[in-house]
């Protein structure tokens, strides 16, 4: 038996919106400690990784570990039937054929219940080793989304250069080229405002990435004020959005081969 309650449906809506463009169906692994999801896009270039800890839910029960295969488009459609402030409960019995999702209004005078069919999803999962990143950029997630949007008007690929001075995003295309530099701030405090950027660096590192994937990652911006971009030579770049007090979404993106 699985039962999990979140006080606000808006959080679950944002989580599903953040991954459904990259992954159409995914296995949700429920265990005593929480929920995990790992899924690659069809082309195996990007990996999405979601972790929600049990203590982030207002109620959480998982009697035995269970994997539920869910079509994310269907999940998203059902979640659209919830008001943002509704409490949401997800429930599945052992060997269930569907996931029960119910919403309760804040006044507790309206309760709706939906069922989404579960599916067997045969997908590859990968082992992600712990890595010592050479550079970690911590920046506003809104700023990240804006840069991705701006760069897409010019090119298809983006180069991220992290140095002690800051982080530079650049692109080029038929129409021309452009770059945006965010200077490193030693401390991120009130004075600097939430838009400031920090770069923790051991060695300068540079990666070239396909912009269309970053546009998908930027859909996680409503979940977190900040995003961290973690870079290491010759390995996928990791983008992390923290989900307040309960976990994170991480996206790993394989770099393009530098020409």
């Amino acid at each position: 038996m699985i039962e999990a309650v979140l006080p606000q449906a808006s959080l679950l809506k944002k989580i599903i919106e953040a991954i459904k463009e990259l992954v159409s169906e995914a296995n949700f692994d429920f265990s005593e400690t929480g929920i995990r999801l790992q899924a690659m896009d069809k082309s195996h270039i990007a990996l999405s990784f979601l972790h929600l800890r049990n203590d982030g839910f207002s109620e959480y029960r998982c009697d035995r570990s269970q994997t539920l295969g869910i079509n994310l488009e269907s999940f998203s459609k059902v979640l659209k039937c919830a008001a943002n402030d509704d409490q949401v409960q997800i429930k599945a019995t052992d060997k269930a054929e569907s996931l029960s999702i119910s919403f309760e209004s804040t006044a507790k005078d309206r309760v709706s219940e939906f069922n989404v069919k579960l599916m067997d999803i045969d997908i590859d999962s990968v082992d992600v080793p712990d890595m010592d990143y050479q550079a970690t950029v911590n920046m506003s997630s809104q700023e990240f989304a804006r840069i991705v949007r701006d760069m897409m008007t010019i090119g298809e690929a983006i180069t991220i250069d992290a140095t002690k001075q800051g982080v530079k995003f650049s692109t080029s295309g038929d129409a021309g080229e452009g770059n945006i530099l965010l200077r490193h701030r030693k401390t991120i405090d009130e004075e600097d405002g939430p838009s400031s950027t920090s770069v923790e660096i051991n060695e300068p590192v540079s990666h070239s990435l396909a912009l269309k994937f970053l546009a998908n990652f930027a859909k996680a911006a409503p979940l977190a004020d900040r995003v961290s971009i973690n870079l290491i030579e010759d390995a996928p770049v990791m983008f992390e959005f923290k989900i307040s007090d309960m976990g994170h979404i991480r996206f790993y993106l394989a770099p393009q081969i530098e020409e």
Binding site: L47, V126, D127, E156, A157, A235, P236, Y252, Q256
Partner: peptide, 14 residues
Amino acid sequence: AAPQRSILSFFGKK
């Protein structure tokens, strides 16, 4: 466009 590597060329399958 530049050639694109796959996640699987970095991380092994479980």
